Simulated scan of single mutants.
Amino acid sequence: MAEPQPFSRIGPVLLTSPVVLSVPHAGRDYPADLAAMLRIPMQAAESLEDRHADLLARQAAASGGVAGLVARVPRLWIDLNRAEQEIDPEMTDPPLRGTALIASAKVRGGLGLVPRRLHPHGDIWCHKLSVDAVAARIRTVHRPYHEALAQLLAQARMRFGVAVLIDLHSMPPIRQAAGQPTARVVIGDRFGRSAAARITARAVAEARVAGLPVAINTPYAGAHMLDRHGDPRRGIHAIQLEIDRSLYLAPGLREPGEGLPRIAGFVAALAAGLAEEVTGWRDAAAAE
């Protein structure tokens, strides 16, 4: 039996926009034998998903002609928004050792490259993983995804002179202090490192036009995806887009809801707005 593809490409073959979409956490192609490997129930494992965020991207690509990648392999198997070195050394047998490993806060919290623990359920896996098994997940899923995304961004930059990555995620509803506005959208730009200020400002403006309360970098500033692909000095900008999943999922947050068309429309409008923003830069530079 052929191995499932780790991701799908969406949108036109010939790029018509400098904006590229990435959906790294919505994969639902769970291996058939996965349940036997888990200490936790499968439904608990699904809580790691950005549930149905891929539908938002697919509709935006269909209506706005934006290309992108959608992960099919679940985050539980390997997290595409972590660096290859963000591995908990104690979850493999034998334990991984070496100065190259990154002991990030996410790793310490159990959510490294391969998630180890899930609150409030505890350890995810019945047994420690072999080093070869982790290496295979990196080789067959993580590297191909990032290589394909880098190629898409390079193509966009070559064609349009600039490229913008929207790394699309969903988040649980944020609980704010009494009397404070509740953000329904969070724009992350690694505190200005992964995108020009004008990109972030335009993203915020598009959220406000859509009537969505928005925050910047709090509580989500982005992670490996932005660090790896965002390079404003080379004309490649990257933002993380977190959307309150209650806006587009039905009550229970497992199935698509009535709000999905509206939020997909917002994603499409955001992509169009960012394309307009950076195309304006190019045209202004050409006129000088």
Rank of each mutant, 00 (worst) to 15 (best):
M1D: 04
A2H: 06
A2G: 02
E3T: 04
S8Q: 11
R9Y: 00
P12R: 00
P12I: 02
P18G: 11
L21Q: 00
S22H: 14
S22V: 10
D29F: 05
P31V: 03
P31K: 06
A32Q: 15
A32G: 11
A32M: 10
I40Q: 09
Q43N: 13
A45F: 14
E49M: 13
R58W: 02
Q59R: 15
Q59A: 14
S63L: 12
V66M: 03
L69P: 02
V70N: 11
V70F: 05
A71C: 13
A71Q: 13
R72Q: 15
V73M: 15
L76G: 07
L76D: 05
N81H: 07
A83V: 02
E84S: 10
E84P: 04
I87N: 02
I87H: 05
M91V: 12
L96M: 13
G98P: 10
S104P: 12
S104N: 08
L111R: 14
L111Y: 07
P115K: 03
P115D: 01
R117H: 05
H119F: 07
P120T: 02
P120W: 00
P120V: 05
L129D: 11
V134T: 00
V134Y: 08
A135N: 13
R139G: 15
R139D: 12
H142A: 15
H142L: 07
R143I: 13
P144W: 11
Y145T: 06
H146M: 12
H146Y: 07
E147P: 06
L153M: 05
L153S: 08
A154L: 06
A154V: 05
Q155R: 11
A156V: 08
R157A: 07
R159I: 00
V162P: 01
A163L: 00
V164A: 07
D167A: 03
S170E: 04
I174C: 06
R175T: 11
A178W: 03
Q180W: 00
P181K: 03
V186Q: 03
G188D: 01
R190G: 01
R190K: 14
F191E: 15
A195Q: 09
A201G: 01
A203K: 05
A207H: 11
V209C: 04
P213Y: 03
V214Y: 01
N217G: 14
T218F: 00
T218L: 12
P219T: 10
P219I: 01
A221F: 00
G222E: 01
G230Q: 02
R233W: 08
A238D: 13
I239Q: 00
Q240V: 02
E242M: 10
R245E: 09
G252V: 01
G252K: 11
R254Y: 01
E255N: 11
E255R: 15
P256L: 04
P256E: 03
G257F: 13
G259K: 08
P261T: 04
R262G: 07
I263D: 03
I263R: 10
L270E: 10
L270N: 06
A272D: 08
G273M: 02
L274R: 12
A275Q: 12
A275N: 03
E277G: 07
V278Y: 11
T279K: 13
T279R: 15
G280K: 07
G280W: 09
R282Q: 14
A284R: 15
A286W: 03
A286P: 08
